[in-house]
Write a protein that binds this DNA or RNA. Structure first.
Length: 155
DNA sequence: GCCAACGTTGGC
DNA sequence: GCCAACGTTGGC
């Protein structure tokens, strides 16, 4: 089993939106980066857990935990001309973009802010992809040790 | 709003 | 294959 971190802008879709979704489940559509696509298409497995991370907001940070409940499948929003994430180059016969389904497992009582994570970036969280310089990937892997440390911060 | 960092595109 | 130009991300 693997661990991940998935970014979302709360102004677009935050953890409270997920909590209100049917069965607390949603498809993680709109990812238009090949590396992140590859993680969803090739590496994420049912039962994997991911941190839900709020980005581009007042207080960026990890706000909860989701479970991967459906493995990679074509992102249909790429085929919809009227969708913000439409991509004319994604052919339904040979889809370019993929998504997974995630279900909310837990919302932290308090967010683990990026500032808090940074306090540990040279020690317990050394090497965490999220904290790497210039990192912009919306989906990144998290080691088991880092996972445990961050979950403990939320207690 | 600024800007550093990065990914993608396209000309050559 | 190189690399400049461009667009996007995302923290501040």
């Amino acid at each position: 089993m693997s661990y991940w971190l998935m970014k979302s802008e709360p102004g677009v879709f935050g953890i409270d939106d997920l909590a209100k979704s049917p069965r607390k489940t949603t498809h993680w559509d709109g990812v238009r980066n090949f590396q992140a696509r590859n993680f969803m298409r090739d590496e994420m497995r049912r039962g994997d857990l991911a941190f839900f991370y709020h980005s581009s907001c007042d207080e960026p940070g990890v706000v909860g935990i989701v479970e991967i409940v459906k493995e990679g499948y074509p992102d249909h929003t790429a085929f919809d001309k009227h969708d913000d994430h439409f991509d004319a180059d994604s052919d339904p016969a040979n889809p370019r973009w993929y998504m997974v389904d995630v279900r909310m497992k837990r919302k932290f009582r308090r967010a683990i802010t990026l500032a808090t994570l940074r306090e540990h970036e040279h020690h317990a969280l050394k090497g965490l992809a999220l904290l790497k310089r210039g990192n912009r990937l919306s989906i990144t892997p998290v080691s088991a040790a880092h996972w445990k440390f961050i979950v403990d911060l939320a207690q």
